[in-house]
Protein backbone atom coordinates (compact mmCIF):
# COMPACT_ATOMS: atom_id res chain seq x y z
CA UNK A 1 0.00 0.00 0.00
CA UNK A 2 2.69 2.42 1.01
CA UNK A 3 4.91 1.45 -1.88
CA UNK A 4 2.08 2.05 -4.34
CA UNK A 5 1.42 5.46 -2.85
CA UNK A 6 5.11 6.29 -3.08
CA UNK A 7 5.14 5.29 -6.73
CA UNK A 8 2.13 7.50 -7.44
CA UNK A 9 3.81 10.43 -5.72
CA UNK A 10 6.94 9.75 -7.77
CA UNK A 11 4.85 9.71 -10.93
CA UNK A 12 3.26 13.09 -10.10
CA UNK A 13 6.66 14.52 -9.29
CA UNK A 14 8.16 13.29 -12.57
CA UNK A 15 5.28 14.65 -14.66
CA UNK A 16 5.53 18.02 -12.94
CA UNK A 17 9.28 17.99 -13.49
CA UNK A 18 8.67 17.57 -17.22
CA UNK A 19 5.98 20.24 -17.27
CA UNK A 20 8.16 22.88 -15.67
CA UNK A 21 10.52 23.55 -18.61
CA UNK A 22 7.62 23.02 -21.01
CA UNK A 23 5.50 25.78 -19.53
CA UNK A 24 8.47 27.95 -18.63
CA UNK A 25 8.42 30.04 -21.85
CA UNK A 26 4.82 31.10 -21.21
CA UNK A 27 5.41 31.95 -17.56
CA UNK A 28 8.59 33.70 -18.60
CA UNK A 29 6.68 35.85 -21.09
CA UNK A 30 4.14 36.86 -18.47
CA UNK A 31 6.93 37.84 -16.05
CA UNK A 32 9.21 39.46 -18.61
CA UNK A 33 6.44 41.74 -19.83
CA UNK A 34 6.84 43.53 -16.48
CA UNK A 35 10.60 43.94 -16.85
CA UNK A 36 12.15 47.27 -17.76
CA UNK A 37 12.97 47.08 -21.48
CA UNK A 38 16.73 47.24 -20.95
CA UNK A 39 16.65 44.20 -18.67
CA UNK A 40 14.97 41.88 -21.14
CA UNK A 41 17.97 40.89 -23.23
CA UNK A 42 20.62 41.19 -20.55
CA UNK A 43 19.10 38.56 -18.30
CA UNK A 44 17.04 36.86 -20.91
CA UNK A 45 16.43 33.61 -19.04
CA UNK A 46 15.75 34.96 -15.58
CA UNK A 47 12.15 34.91 -14.51
CA UNK A 48 11.71 37.80 -12.13
CA UNK A 49 12.29 41.44 -13.02
CA UNK A 50 14.52 43.45 -10.67
CA UNK A 51 11.47 45.60 -10.11
CA UNK A 52 8.01 45.34 -11.63
CA UNK A 53 7.13 48.05 -14.12
CA UNK A 54 3.84 48.58 -15.88
CA UNK A 55 5.33 50.94 -18.46
CA UNK A 56 5.35 48.27 -21.13
CA UNK A 57 1.59 47.90 -20.91
CA UNK A 58 1.06 51.60 -20.45
CA UNK A 59 2.82 52.20 -23.75
CA UNK A 60 0.34 49.91 -25.47
CA UNK A 61 -2.37 52.41 -24.57
CA UNK A 62 -0.81 54.59 -27.24
CA UNK A 63 -0.11 54.17 -30.92
CA UNK A 64 2.04 51.95 -33.06
CA UNK A 65 2.83 53.07 -36.63
CA UNK A 66 0.23 55.78 -36.16
CA UNK A 67 -2.51 53.30 -35.28
CA UNK A 68 -3.98 52.87 -31.79
CA UNK A 69 -3.00 49.46 -30.44
CA UNK A 70 -6.58 48.43 -29.58
CA UNK A 71 -7.24 48.56 -33.31
CA UNK A 72 -4.97 45.55 -33.90
CA UNK A 73 -7.00 43.59 -31.39
CA UNK A 74 -10.25 44.64 -33.06
CA UNK A 75 -8.90 43.60 -36.47
CA UNK A 76 -7.71 40.24 -35.19
CA UNK A 77 -11.05 39.59 -33.51
CA UNK A 78 -12.87 40.48 -36.71
CA UNK A 79 -10.71 38.22 -38.88
CA UNK A 80 -10.61 35.30 -36.45
CA UNK A 81 -14.28 35.60 -35.50
CA UNK A 82 -15.39 35.91 -39.12
CA UNK A 83 -13.26 32.91 -40.06
CA UNK A 84 -14.73 30.85 -37.23
CA UNK A 85 -18.31 31.59 -38.27
CA UNK A 86 -17.51 30.98 -41.93
CA UNK A 87 -15.88 27.62 -41.21
CA UNK A 88 -18.74 26.41 -39.03
CA UNK A 89 -21.26 27.28 -41.70
CA UNK A 90 -19.50 26.00 -44.81
CA UNK A 91 -17.84 22.94 -43.32
CA UNK A 92 -21.02 21.68 -41.66
CA UNK A 93 -22.89 21.93 -44.97
CA UNK A 94 -20.24 19.97 -46.83
CA UNK A 95 -19.83 17.47 -44.00
CA UNK A 96 -23.56 16.70 -44.00
CA UNK A 97 -23.48 15.92 -47.71
CA UNK A 98 -20.47 13.63 -47.29
CA UNK A 99 -21.73 11.93 -44.15
CA UNK A 100 -25.38 11.42 -45.00
CA UNK A 101 -26.43 12.09 -48.57
CA UNK A 102 -26.03 9.80 -51.56
CA UNK A 103 -24.73 11.22 -54.76
CA UNK A 104 -22.85 9.77 -57.62
CA UNK A 105 -19.43 11.34 -57.12
CA UNK A 106 -19.37 10.94 -53.37
CA UNK A 107 -16.46 8.49 -53.24
CA UNK A 108 -14.03 10.41 -55.47
CA UNK A 109 -15.02 13.80 -54.09
CA UNK A 110 -14.52 12.61 -50.53
CA UNK A 111 -11.08 11.25 -51.41
CA UNK A 112 -10.23 14.54 -53.10
CA UNK A 113 -11.42 16.46 -50.04
CA UNK A 114 -9.14 14.38 -47.81
CA UNK A 115 -6.22 14.93 -50.16
CA UNK A 116 -6.63 18.71 -49.94
CA UNK A 117 -5.93 18.48 -46.18
CA UNK A 118 -2.42 17.47 -47.16
CA UNK A 119 -2.01 20.09 -49.88
CA UNK A 120 0.72 22.59 -48.99
CA UNK A 121 -0.80 26.07 -49.04
CA UNK A 122 2.29 27.38 -50.78
CA UNK A 123 1.50 25.53 -53.97
CA UNK A 124 -1.56 27.70 -54.56
CA UNK A 125 -0.44 30.88 -52.81
CA UNK A 126 0.49 32.92 -55.84
CA UNK A 127 -2.54 32.27 -58.05
CA UNK A 128 -4.80 32.87 -55.05
CA UNK A 129 -3.06 36.15 -54.45
CA UNK A 130 -3.47 37.06 -58.12
CA UNK A 131 -7.19 36.27 -57.96
CA UNK A 132 -7.75 38.44 -54.90
CA UNK A 133 -5.67 41.18 -56.41
CA UNK A 134 -7.81 41.13 -59.57
CA UNK A 135 -10.93 41.25 -57.42
CA UNK A 136 -9.56 44.34 -55.67
CA UNK A 137 -9.60 42.51 -52.34
CA UNK A 138 -5.94 42.82 -51.41
CA UNK A 139 -5.59 44.89 -48.25
CA UNK A 140 -9.07 43.90 -47.09
CA UNK A 141 -10.10 41.05 -44.78
CA UNK A 142 -11.86 39.18 -47.60
CA UNK A 143 -8.90 37.04 -48.74
CA UNK A 144 -8.66 35.79 -45.16
CA UNK A 145 -12.36 34.99 -44.67
CA UNK A 146 -13.73 34.17 -48.11
CA UNK A 147 -11.73 30.93 -48.50
CA UNK A 148 -13.27 29.74 -45.24
CA UNK A 149 -16.78 30.57 -46.47
CA UNK A 150 -15.92 28.24 -49.36
CA UNK A 151 -14.93 25.40 -47.03
CA UNK A 152 -11.26 25.24 -48.01
CA UNK A 153 -10.31 24.12 -44.47
CA UNK A 154 -11.00 20.49 -45.26
CA UNK A 155 -9.69 19.37 -41.89
CA UNK A 156 -12.88 20.61 -40.28
CA UNK A 157 -15.13 18.96 -42.88
CA UNK A 158 -13.40 15.73 -41.96
CA UNK A 159 -13.81 16.39 -38.24
CA UNK A 160 -17.54 16.99 -38.66
CA UNK A 161 -18.02 13.98 -40.93
CA UNK A 162 -16.54 11.87 -38.13
CA UNK A 163 -19.02 13.32 -35.64
CA UNK A 164 -22.01 12.98 -37.96
CA UNK A 165 -21.24 9.35 -38.70
CA UNK A 166 -21.70 8.62 -35.01
CA UNK A 167 -25.26 9.90 -34.99
CA UNK A 168 -27.69 6.97 -35.29
CA UNK A 169 -29.27 6.88 -38.71
CA UNK A 170 -32.60 5.98 -37.15
CA UNK A 171 -32.95 9.61 -36.12
CA UNK A 172 -32.71 10.81 -39.73
CA UNK A 173 -35.04 8.09 -40.88
CA UNK A 174 -37.63 8.91 -38.25
CA UNK A 175 -37.54 12.52 -39.36
CA UNK A 176 -37.87 11.42 -43.00
CA UNK A 177 -40.94 9.37 -42.15
CA UNK A 178 -42.37 12.51 -40.58
CA UNK A 179 -41.94 14.14 -43.94
CA UNK A 180 -38.77 16.15 -43.38
CA UNK A 181 -36.46 16.82 -46.32
CA UNK A 182 -32.69 16.86 -46.13
CA UNK A 183 -32.57 20.55 -45.35
CA UNK A 184 -34.93 20.21 -42.38
CA UNK A 185 -33.07 17.14 -41.14
CA UNK A 186 -29.78 18.98 -41.33
CA UNK A 187 -31.08 21.96 -39.40
CA UNK A 188 -33.34 20.25 -36.90
CA UNK A 189 -31.69 16.87 -36.29
CA UNK A 190 -28.02 16.85 -37.28
CA UNK A 191 -26.81 20.33 -36.34
CA UNK A 192 -28.08 20.25 -32.74
CA UNK A 193 -26.50 16.84 -32.26
CA UNK A 194 -23.07 17.83 -33.54
CA UNK A 195 -22.88 20.97 -31.46
CA UNK A 196 -19.62 19.84 -29.80
CA UNK A 197 -18.08 19.53 -33.27
CA UNK A 198 -19.34 22.97 -34.24
CA UNK A 199 -17.90 24.53 -31.10
CA UNK A 200 -14.62 22.67 -31.58
CA UNK A 201 -14.42 23.89 -35.17
CA UNK A 202 -15.24 27.47 -34.19
CA UNK A 203 -12.63 27.61 -31.43
CA UNK A 204 -9.88 25.87 -33.39
CA UNK A 205 -10.52 28.12 -36.37
CA UNK A 206 -10.48 31.18 -34.14
CA UNK A 207 -7.18 30.20 -32.53
CA UNK A 208 -5.47 29.11 -35.75
CA UNK A 209 -6.55 32.26 -37.55
CA UNK A 210 -5.56 34.36 -34.56
CA UNK A 211 -2.07 32.83 -34.77
CA UNK A 212 -1.84 32.73 -38.55
CA UNK A 213 0.93 34.93 -39.83
CA UNK A 214 1.70 34.16 -43.48
CA UNK A 215 -1.62 35.02 -45.11
CA UNK A 216 -2.12 38.14 -43.01
CA UNK A 217 1.43 39.17 -43.90
CA UNK A 218 0.71 38.75 -47.57
CA UNK A 219 -2.72 40.30 -47.80
CA UNK A 220 -2.68 43.21 -45.34
CA UNK A 221 -0.41 46.19 -46.00
CA UNK A 222 -2.18 49.22 -44.53
CA UNK A 223 -1.27 49.51 -40.81
CA UNK A 224 -4.89 50.48 -40.11
CA UNK A 225 -5.81 46.92 -41.12
CA UNK A 226 -2.98 45.19 -39.31
CA UNK A 227 -3.81 42.28 -37.07
CA UNK A 228 -1.84 41.43 -33.93
CA UNK A 229 0.78 39.21 -35.63
CA UNK A 230 1.55 42.06 -38.04
CA UNK A 231 1.67 44.62 -35.24
CA UNK A 232 4.19 42.41 -33.46
CA UNK A 233 6.21 42.24 -36.63
CA UNK A 234 6.64 46.03 -36.46
CA UNK A 235 8.60 45.50 -33.25
CA UNK A 236 10.69 42.71 -34.70
CA UNK A 237 12.16 45.03 -37.29
CA UNK A 238 13.42 47.48 -34.70
CA UNK A 239 16.67 46.73 -32.88
CA UNK A 240 15.98 49.37 -30.25
CA UNK A 241 16.39 47.87 -26.77
CA UNK A 242 13.65 50.04 -25.31
CA UNK A 243 11.03 48.53 -27.62
CA UNK A 244 11.62 45.04 -26.20
CA UNK A 245 9.39 45.79 -23.24
CA UNK A 246 6.24 46.78 -25.17
CA UNK A 247 6.94 43.97 -27.66
CA UNK A 248 6.74 41.40 -24.88
CA UNK A 249 3.71 43.08 -23.34
CA UNK A 250 1.86 42.92 -26.66
CA UNK A 251 3.04 39.31 -27.17
CA UNK A 252 1.62 38.40 -23.79
CA UNK A 253 -1.69 40.16 -24.42
CA UNK A 254 -2.01 38.43 -27.78
CA UNK A 255 -1.93 35.03 -26.06
CA UNK A 256 -4.64 35.89 -23.53
CA UNK A 257 -7.66 35.07 -25.74
CA UNK A 258 -6.15 31.69 -26.66
CA UNK A 259 -5.51 30.86 -23.02
CA UNK A 260 -9.03 31.92 -22.07
CA UNK A 261 -10.58 29.73 -24.76
CA UNK A 262 -8.36 26.89 -23.72
CA UNK A 263 -9.23 27.27 -20.05
CA UNK A 264 -12.94 27.26 -20.86
CA UNK A 265 -13.00 24.49 -23.46
CA UNK A 266 -9.90 22.40 -22.85
CA UNK A 267 -11.70 19.07 -22.67
CA UNK A 268 -13.65 19.70 -25.84
CA UNK A 269 -10.58 20.91 -27.73
CA UNK A 270 -8.28 18.12 -26.64
CA UNK A 271 -10.83 15.40 -27.31
CA UNK A 272 -12.00 16.94 -30.56
CA UNK A 273 -8.43 16.97 -31.74
CA UNK A 274 -7.76 13.44 -30.55
CA UNK A 275 -10.73 11.89 -32.37
CA UNK A 276 -9.69 13.54 -35.63
CA UNK A 277 -6.62 11.34 -35.70
CA UNK A 278 -8.10 8.05 -34.67
CA UNK A 279 -10.73 7.20 -37.16
CA UNK A 280 -8.77 8.34 -40.20
Amino acid sequence: MNAARLRTAGWHLFVLLLLTPLLYPIVWLAAASFKPGSEVLEQSLSLLPSHFVFDNYRELGGELAGVPVWRFFANSILVAGGSALANVLSCSLAAYAFARLRFRLRGPLFAFMLATIMLPAHAVLIPQYTIFQRLGMVDTFWPLILPKLLATDAFFIFLMVQFMRNIPRELDEAARLDGCGSIRIFGAVILPLVRPALVTTAIFTFIWTWNDFLSQLIYLSDPEKYTLPLALRLFIDTTDQASYGPMLALSALALVPILLFFAAFQRLLVEGFATSGLKG
Partner: peptide
Protein backbone atom coordinates in the same frame (compact mmCIF):
# COMPACT_ATOMS: atom_id res chain seq x y z
CA UNK B 1 -2.98 16.10 -20.75
CA UNK B 2 -4.23 19.68 -21.13
CA UNK B 3 -1.02 21.13 -19.74
CA UNK B 4 1.10 19.16 -22.22
CA UNK B 5 -1.26 20.08 -25.03
CA UNK B 6 -1.26 23.84 -24.35
CA UNK B 7 2.01 24.62 -26.20
CA UNK B 8 0.55 23.23 -29.45
CA UNK B 9 -2.18 25.85 -29.37
CA UNK B 10 0.26 28.67 -28.69
CA UNK B 11 3.35 27.56 -30.57
CA UNK B 12 2.41 28.77 -34.04
CA UNK B 13 1.89 32.33 -32.85
CA UNK B 14 4.18 35.27 -33.43
CA UNK B 15 4.08 35.83 -29.66
CA UNK B 16 5.82 32.55 -28.90
CA UNK B 17 8.27 33.09 -31.76
CA UNK B 18 9.13 36.43 -30.16
CA UNK B 19 9.70 34.64 -26.84
CA UNK B 20 11.99 32.19 -28.60
CA UNK B 21 13.89 35.02 -30.18
CA UNK B 22 14.60 36.60 -26.81
CA UNK B 23 15.24 33.43 -24.82
Amino acid sequence: RSAFYAPSLLGASVSVAVVWRVI
